[in-house]
Design a protein around this nucleic acid. Structure first.
Lengths: 136, 136
DNA sequence: CTGCCACTTCAAGTCAACTTGAGGTCAACA
DNA sequence: TGTTGACCTCAAGTTGACTTGAAGTGGCAG
């Protein structure tokens, strides 16, 4: 199997080498060899990095993410918890969707006073409610 | 108009008083009066707080959020930028949706080796791609 | 064989977003 | 009138996620 030099992986993934080293230090990813000094990674690490960036996007801490995946990078949670996470994501998606709708409403609504606009308030309160099943 | 004591607002919104003071310090919200020592807030601040928590959920920094809203808390961006933000949210929602789908797939897929499963990889790579229009 | 450059380690620094602690104040209740 | 409790200020501490800097190394290009 062809290995990826840290520099190559970094370029490919957009993640700086310092961050890759940091991720390895905290056990989030693993290098499998060295070429001289240089870390070499298995290609699937690229998928892992994609997963990590998604996890961050979803607001998970690196610790959370670490707990969600085995060292080979494949998800490592009991079925039930996976569904729980997925459900939580659904909630979050709902919140973001309503925030988006609120922004679009504001862009199109001629009213001066959005804080008083019932439609706006409804959108925001609703959105915040579904958002309050918190992650961070 | 009835004002809210910081303690009341805190209880109502779930945001600790220390955080409310901090938010005021950085100019994100404003108290309008004091009762003795105690800060008093206008009720619409509650809506502002909802908006702030949504913004954080979406991965915006407090600085970003501050720039997006006028001091009265109503969104304060040119129309075009509002649409841009909304579009960015759409991208983020797509990413999260695919992450969710990936998690559900894993929960239901009997394969041992998700990192090799083409469906899983496809979901993740796709998701990461739409996520890379970055926010933070 | 000599540079060069991207890597290496390790410690320390940075930034955002809060929280905590010390020492003080006020109003309301017993 | 005195005590209580929730607030006040201001400075310093904390946590997570990195980045930066100093001092060193290894392989490849010329």
């Amino acid at each position: 199997m062809k290995l990826l030099d840290i520099g190559v992986l970094s370029k490919q993934s957009g993640v700086p080498p310092s961050t890759l080293r940091y991720y390895e230090e905290i056990g989030l990813i693993q290098s499998v060899a060295r070429n001289g000094l240089r870390r070499q990674f298995d290609p699937p690490v690229a998928t892992q990095l994609a997963l990590i960036s998604l996890g961050k996007l979803a607001g998970f801490s690196l610790e959370d993410i670490k707990r969600m995946f085995a060292k080979d990078g494949s998800p490592d949670l009991p079925r039930a918890e996976l569904h729980e996470r997925a459900d939580a994501l659904d909630e979050q998606i709902k919140g973001l969707t309503r925030l988006r709708d609120a922004l679009r409403h504001v862009a199109d609504c001629p009213a001066e006073t959005h804080m008083e606009c019932p439609k706006f308030k409804r959108l925001v309160q609703f959105a915040a409610r579904s958002a309050s099943g918190r992650t961070r």
